[in-house]
Write a protein that binds this DNA or RNA. Structure first.
Length: 667
RNA sequence: GCGCUCGUAGCUCAACUGGAUAGAGCAUCGGCCUUCGAAGCCGGGGGUCGCAGGUUCGAGUCCUGCCGAGCGCACCA
């Protein structure tokens, strides 16, 4: 872990700037970087560049003055001004490594974080099986949760269930209109088939059915009305479908080590009249007002204060600067429910759900769900909602609505909460043309679709790759690789390994791309276990494990015994006395995990985490080929190498855990 | 029409948010399994960073204008 040293370095530079140049500017930011190679230094800062104009001196001269005045700082052996003006710092290698392995000294701790943070992710309509687009959301969301927890932030993970929307209504229509299946029939079906897959196909058929005759949309409207108002038998059937599909989604996500603490059901928000509360707050603060004129006459509207969010395509008339929140018939629009939900998340609603146990989490704890039924309500439950900060993980197409949410918080007088609401936006997943062709989704040759750079996934059309199908394929492929390499292991063990490898492949694939980039999903790439892939990272960790395993098996040396003498061992080899800094470079790179996590949380760019893990694994693999441990005869060299490998393994394992990936004993 | 995002090697993507010689994977060509596992390692070839200006010690990164692509902008959800 390197961040404590960053802080020490910054503090020292700050003090020097104050002493020598009388610069006490509190917002002067001192950035600490990692120089491109170890001969230049271990940490570096371009601070002299920032001061060059202010001090009317060359950056190099400033860097030299700072270096000369630097003085002793624990953990730092040398400070140097590079010819180009960088101020570079060299660390005390042995004490750095020993402290991080817990063999000597202590690590300075960073202040604890206490602000409760809600992360909402997944939020798949509970009317069909999950597809790869949903997986991107969940993989990013879950990695965010893990990253926040890694740095000590208390997190509450929620999954929002839209059980009362048109998508569920459409499947209900399918069951009743052309399958003629009632609740009892649906139960029967759920007991005997892949219910979420069945709904996937049915949903696509309903979409086609509507397209055949627009009049049929009236059936949807009536169904939606019955669901919202609890009219049986429609409402009961809808509830059953949503419940069953949600449980299927949970199972799918659990395969990837993704789970939740609370399911928030839209139906409960409706029945508990959260919107009425939110509406009162918005009226009271003037955030919404009744429009009397123009095309929005009779509607309650909210002013859009951001001109780039003009909702009307035609022109810039005054009405286009407002968003309708309550229609002239008195019903609230879609985003209104989101506002009520968000007010609750931010602790501003003054009203709470009831809660019921829903399932058991992967760690054995209870997965809770909201309820509006007092008969189901548990008398004791953890407290939910009312967070200091919120992340909503939703794809970029919802950016406009998320902006409205933020504005609503500000408009009711809670700018601080608005500032701490983050829309974690990411681009969608489409299919590469090659994969679309392979799956039988190729668009007609001369169509507009065929000319686009990728083929769009559409749940509505049943066009896409189901999450479980992808996971099955990737695990099957991993299984055949494991069978080849580990024929002596029992089947169940090989299966466990294949699952771990498959998860690594899928999860790495889903976060390796920048979130602003559309993923043109390519099945061959997703199934690849070579090069920049999850299994590559696992493989490096497995190799590191094997070294210690072999040390134990062949020489009877366990890790502790191997490393214990190091505090009194000669440090020359780690210090690069032979001109080789490869070992130290590995240690330093491994230590950067906390720095990377900070960057990732700041920018929400999880591709950076993926690349870091890959680069670290690459560094280890190169080292592994060049340097022996088992057969190394120089005792101190062998022990320092073992120490570096131990630290690398620790850090890479932590990094993989941030992606929900485990390191198998073999693979 | 307005807004957001993207354009970097044959393909898919990076570049620590303005820093040191623009790097990886795949593909391709050539080496390395009697030494801790070849899901690996080493090396070669491959670049007008979409185009044109500008800002400054420094620009793939920032500003402006073009070109190309994607997405969004309802009294839908």
């Amino acid at each position: 872990m390197i961040l404590p040293l960053h802080e020490q370095l910054k503090a020292r530079v700050r003090t020097l700037l104050a002493e020598r140049y009388d610069i006490t500017d509190p917002d002067l930011s001192i950035t600490v970087e990692c120089p491109p190679n170890r001969t230049l230094g271990d940490l570096g800062t371009p601070v002299a560049f920032d001061l060059a104009r202010r001090l009317r001196k060359a950056p190099r001269a400033i860097a030299q003055e700072i270096a000369a005045a630097f003085g002793p700082v624990p953990g730092i052996t040398r400070v140097e001004a590079a010819p180009n003006g960088y101020l570079n710092v060299f660390l005390d290698r042995p004490s750095f490594l020993l402290a991080r392995l817990g063999l000597a000294g202590t690590l300075p701790a960073l202040p604890p974080r206490t602000d409760k943070t809600i992360v909402e992710h997944t939020a798949i309509n509970p009317n069909k099986a999950a597809h790869i687009g949903h997986l991107r959301n969940s993989a990013l969301g879950d990695t965010l949760v893990r990253a926040l927890r890694f740095r000590g932030t208390p997190v509450e993970v929620q999954n929002y269930i839209d059980d009362t929307g048109v998508q569920v209504a459409d499947v209900v229509v399918g069951f009743r209109e052309f399958e003629k299946i009632d609740l009892a029939g649906a139960r029967q079906l759920a007991a005997t088939t892949r219910f979420d897959y069945y709904c996937w196909d049915l949903y696509a058929r309903v979409t086609e059915w509507y397209a055949g005759d627009k009049e049929r949309l009236k059936v949807r409207a009536a169904t939606l009305h019955d669901i919202e108002h609890g009219v049986e038998p429609t409402a009961g059937l809808a509830a059953f479908i949503a419940d069953t599909v949600v449980r299927a989604h949970l199972k799918t996500m659990a395969r990837l080590n993704i789970d939740y603490q609370l399911l928030t059901w839209e139906g409960d928000i409706l029945r508990l009249k959260f919107w009425a509360r939110a509406f009162e707050a918005m009226k009271a603060t003037g955030a919404v007002y009744l429009q009397h004129e123009g095309k929005h006459a009779g509607c309650w509207v909210m002013k859009i204060d951001d001109p780039d969010a003009t909702p009307s395509p035609e022109d810039d008339d005054p009405e286009s600067r407002e968003k309708v929140i309550v229609r002239s018939n008195g019903t609230a629009v879609y985003v209104a429910k989101d506002m009520a939900y968000q007010f609750w998340k931010s602790g501003l609603l003054g009203h709470d759900f009831y809660y019921r146990p829903f399932a058991t989490r992967m760690n054995g704890e209870t997965l809770w769900a909201t309820t509006s039924d007092t008969a189901l309500a548990a008398s004791e439950h953890p407290s939910f909602g009312a967070a200091a900060a919120t992340y909503n993980v939703i794809d970029v197409r919802q950016a406009y609505l998320q902006k409205l949410l933020k504005q609503a918080l500000g408009a009711i007088g809670h700018q601080a909460e608005a500032d701490r609401l983050t829309h974690f936006s990411y681009e969608m997943v489409a299919l590469s043309h090659a994969t679309a062709r392979e799956l039988g989704f190729a668009p007609p040759p001369d169509s507009d679709e065929a000319k686009r750079p990728f083929v769009e996934v559409s749940g509505r059309k049943g066009l896409g790759v189901k999450a479980d199908d992808l996971i099955d394929r990737v695990i099957d492929k991993a299984m055949s690789e494991v069978d080849r390499r580990q024929p002596d292991l029992p089947e169940a063990e090989r299966r466990r390994i294949a699952e771990a490898v498959g998860i690594a492949a899928v999860r790495y694939f889903l976060i390796k791309y920048s979130r602003t980039k559309v993923i043109a999903f390519d099945i061959d790439e997703a199934l690849s276990f070579e090069g920049e892939s999850g299994p590559y990272l696992q493989y490096a960790a497995v190799r590191a494990n094997n070294i210690f395993q072999k040390l134990h098996d062949r020489l009877g040396l366990d890790e502790a015994a191997m490393l214990a003498p190091l505090p009194s061992a000669p440090p020359d080899f780690l210090n690069g006395s032979d001109g080789d800094h490869e070992l130290w470079a590995l240690v330093l790179e491994a230590s950067r995990l906390d720095d990377v996590v900070e960057q990732v949380v700041r920018t929400l760019e999880f591709a950076v985490l993926a690349k870091y893990g890959f680069g670290l694994a690459q560094m280890f693999n190169a080292f592994y080929h060049r340097a022996q441990i088992l057969n190394e005869e120089r005792d101190d060299v062998r022990r320092w190498r073992a120490a570096a490998v131990a630290y690398f393994r620790l850090q890479l394992t932590r990094m993989l855990d941030l992606m929900g990936v485990a390191v198998p004993p073999r693979m």
